[in-house]
């Protein structure tokens, strides 16, 4: 574990990512301290460019873009992490059962997974939110529903490989139960792969969320980066910064998570070392 930590720290892009991510987390944490009150509140003249009265300018209604960006960080992180957590639990369960038991269970679960991978997942997410409504819980649910298949496939592959490893066969021939084999012997050996994939899934979830809210499918009570871009679109020609600012926030957050994910991958799976 110490080796893995050292490998991560030596990975420069991962450190950059980690610093960026910590900054986003801090932004989310201090949003209500820096900007008490509703981020939807009108605070000044509309269409003010950045670095005037307001550090990031105001939008077409005169709302403070900086406040929106800080509050948006909360929404983004909340939805990204919550949706990924649910999708990971579902994916690991389905993939694990399919990979460990094989046979008919595997065939059935994998057909289900393939089905969900065939569906244009963004369109499916739109449909779910359109049908269910756009509260934050339902958005999280919709994103989780469309995100679990890659995790299930990965975990299934890992479990199948582990199932045939001799140390697992040794467990079986000792008379160990399935639950103990899965939890004590297989899961810890697949954890690094799950962590890496999970971290990259957070990035994807954030991109889906921003896309949904760009199309107007965000929780109307919660500030979100995609929502600002979507509403600023109509004034793109005159006030391009309204769209540009939250976009940069999304880009940096997603990039930070991807970089951390890559760093974790190199740190936890030291396959391609310098030989």
């Amino acid at each position: 574990m110490r080796d893995a930590f050292l490998r991560f720290v030596r990975h420069k892009p991962a450190l950059v990512g980690l610093v960026l991510l910590v900054m986003v987390v801090i932004a989310a944490a201090v949003a209500s301290l820096l900007y008490p009150g509703d981020p939807f509140r009108i605070v000044g003249k509309p269409f003010q460019p950045p670095l005037t009265d307001f550090p990031l300018g105001t939008d077409m209604l005169g709302r403070d873009l900086a406040a929106a960006v800080f509050y948006g960080a909360r929404t983004t992180l909340l939805i990204g992490f919550a949706a990924t957590l649910i999708a990971t639990v579902v994916g690991v369960t389905i993939g694990g059962l399919a990979g460990y038991f094989g046979g008919r269970a595997d065939a059935l679960l994998m057909r289900l997974t393939e089905l969900f991978q065939t569906i244009p997942f963004f369109l499916f997410a739109i449909l779910l939110v359109a049908v269910l409504g756009s509260s934050i819980g339902k958005i999280i649910f919709a994103i989780a529903v469309v995100s679990w298949p890659p995790m299930a496939r990965l975990v299934r592959g890992e479990f199948m490989a582990m199932r045939n490893r001799e140390f697992v066969q040794a467990c079986v021939s000792m008379g160990m139960g399935h639950a103990r084999i899965i939890v004590v012997h297989i899961l810890p050996n697949t954890l690094s792969a799950i962590v890496v994939t999970g971290s990259l899934m957070i990035a994807t979830a954030i991109l889906i969320e921003s896309g949904l809210s760009f199309l107007g499918l965000s929780d109307p009570n919660v500030m979100s980066w995609g929502y600002i871009i979507g509403s600023g679109r109509s004034v793109l020609r005159t006030a391009w910064w309204i769209c540009a600012v939250p976009g940069v926030a999304i880009l940096l957050t997603v990039m930070a998570i991807n970089l951390v994910g890559d760093g974790l991958n190199d740190a936890l799976n030291p396959r391609l070392r310098q030989l």
């Binding site: 760009f214 871009i229 793109l236 769209c243 976009g247 880009l251 940096l252 991807n258």
Partner: peptide
């Protein structure tokens, strides 16, 4: 590629419009 992989598609479209069209 790290940058492009982190860019929301709709935002990239808007920014390309600002640059290449507007």
């Amino acid at each position: 590629t790290v940058l492009a992989y982190a860019t929301p598609v709709f935002w990239a479209g808007l920014m390309l419009i600002v640059l290449f069209s507007v």
